[in-house]
Write a protein that binds this DNA or RNA. Structure first.
Lengths: 180, 180
DNA sequence: GCTAAATAGTTTCACGTGCAACTATTTTGG
DNA sequence: CCAAAATAGTTGCACGTGAAACTATTTAGC
């Protein structure tokens, strides 16, 4: 209490988009990169309750489960890494843990013995089926402050930025970029 | 190449918002928390070039600089921690480094000797003045894919979510929540 | 006024992550 | 075919971060 500077405005909204002129400062609270970072961190921790506390999964593990659960056929660690934009070593460790827990299994690829195809086990599938509705519910809670139309807007806007940053890749494109 | 499953659709946009009915899967690429995470990470690394490579600052240090630069008067580490939503130990380490580099200085608070008031040095101010236009330019590049109106929309939508998640706090409110 | 609780800030510790090096396998090119 | 480059996946290492413990100081309660 008694912070003498308490009255400094911290409100974010209604950026002064009108004047791109000679700003002599940067308001962190209107700075989109900062806002995205903060928002993502907050949303993540809100979701963590579901997969972490309730199911013992961390984010990378959940991404593996989610990718395998969404697709029917088995796919490689590489593929998961690329399309979730998660570093391959991170995926590798998550895969090791999930194998150990019997949530996924891997099938040797006869034609290329470097790569393994991964798929959910029965147990893994069951977890996926239980988990994803809970996560969708959380997402819903988070977006409850938006109308249906606003949600559509948000989705479209994010899509545009993603596209412009090349975050949306076809598998072909993903093949081109290694690193991940 | 020759990924047999290459043709699986990875496109994100145009979520099937219409049917909130019995989905039996979760498409990670339509899942807003995932998208926010990925987007924030990507945007961060795009900006990192500016403050990291060109000025040797990391994100926490930049947040300290930005907060002090935006405000005229000196403020406490606590304050910076709360309003940037960055853990206090992280801010503490950033402050130590910035003090060492002579970018900020601290003034003893006579009425409360536990707390220090922080402010930019001349050198720090100069860095701020040089850095923030570059960052705004980057932000501009990233949002270049959006029209002026879309940017306004995005800002408003983020604002609503932030508000609903209680991310926008007056200092008063911030005082209530500790932890940070 | 003295003890207990609260607060600002620092530091130690454990842990997750990215990078780079490594192994094993496959592909390419001469 | 064989050597060199490329690729899938793993692992060692360094580093940044959050939680919790800690120091110093202030406030609250009796």
């Amino acid at each position: 209490m008694a912070r003498t500077s308490s009255d400094i405005a911290l409100k974010t909204r209604e950026a002064d988009e009108a004047s791109p002129g000679p700003k002599s400062r940067l308001d962190l609270f209107k700075f989109v990169p900062f806002r995205l970072n903060r928002l993502a961190a907050e949303v993540s921790s809100a979701l963590a309750v579901e997969y972490q506390e309730r199911h013992g999964l961390d984010i990378p593990a959940w991404r593996v489960i989610a990718t395998l659960g969404f697709r029917n056929d088995a796919c490689s660690a590489q593929y998961i890494s690329q399309c979730t934009r998660t570093h391959k070593s991170t995926i590798s460790r998550a895969v090791t843990a999930l194998l150990h827990d019997g949530l996924i299994e891997r099938v040797e690829n006869e034609t290329d013995r470097r790569e393994f195809r991964l798929r959910l086990t029965k147990k893994g599938r069951a977890l996926y089926e239980e988990l994803f509705p809970q996560l969708l519910r959380r997402e819903d809670e988070i977006l409850a402050c938006l109308s249906a139309q606003e949600r559509k807007q948000l989705s479209a806007l994010l899509g545009k930025i993603e596209e412009s940053l090349d975050l949306i890749q076809t598998s072909e494109e993903a093949d081109a970029k290694q690193a991940y």
